[in-house]
Amino acid sequence: MKIEAWIFGATALFFLIVTPAYWFATKANLGDPDWTGTVALAMTMLLALMVTLYLGFHAKKMDARPEDRSDAEIAEGAGELGFFPPYSWWPLWCALCLATMVYGVAMGAWWLVIIGAGLGAVALCGFVFEYYRGEYSH
Rank of each mutant, 00 (worst) to 15 (best):
M1R: 04
K2A: 13
I3W: 07
E4N: 04
E4V: 05
W6N: 14
I7N: 05
F8D: 10
F8W: 10
T11N: 12
L13A: 14
L13S: 12
I17F: 14
I17D: 13
V18G: 02
P20I: 10
P20L: 09
A21V: 15
A21L: 14
Y22V: 03
F24Q: 07
A25M: 04
T26G: 03
T26D: 10
N29F: 15
G31P: 01
P33Y: 10
D34Y: 05
T36N: 13
T36H: 13
G37A: 08
T38S: 14
T38Q: 03
A42T: 13
A42L: 10
M43V: 15
T44S: 08
L47G: 00
L47E: 09
V51L: 12
V51T: 08
V51Q: 08
V51K: 05
T52Q: 06
L53H: 03
Y54Q: 09
Y54P: 03
L55K: 07
G56P: 02
G56H: 01
H58K: 09
K60A: 12
K60D: 13
K60C: 12
M62H: 04
M62P: 01
D63C: 01
A64W: 01
R65C: 04
P66G: 00
R69W: 08
S70Y: 11
S70P: 07
D71T: 03
E76I: 05
E76T: 04
G77E: 03
A78H: 11
G79Q: 08
G79T: 09
L81Q: 11
G82N: 08
G82H: 08
F83H: 11
F84Y: 12
F84C: 11
Y87S: 13
S88P: 01
W90M: 06
P91V: 09
P91F: 05
L92W: 06
L92A: 14
A95E: 12
C97P: 00
C97T: 09
L98E: 04
A99N: 11
A99H: 06
V102Y: 07
Y103C: 14
Y103A: 15
A106S: 09
A106F: 12
G108Y: 05
A109G: 09
W111S: 14
L112G: 04
I115Y: 02
I115M: 01
L119N: 05
G120Q: 01
A123F: 04
A123T: 05
L124K: 01
L124W: 07
C125Y: 15
C125H: 15
G126D: 05
G126I: 02
G126T: 06
F129P: 00
F129G: 01
E130I: 04
E130W: 01
E130G: 05
E130H: 07
Y131R: 08
R133T: 13
G134P: 00
Y136K: 11
S137T: 12
S137M: 09
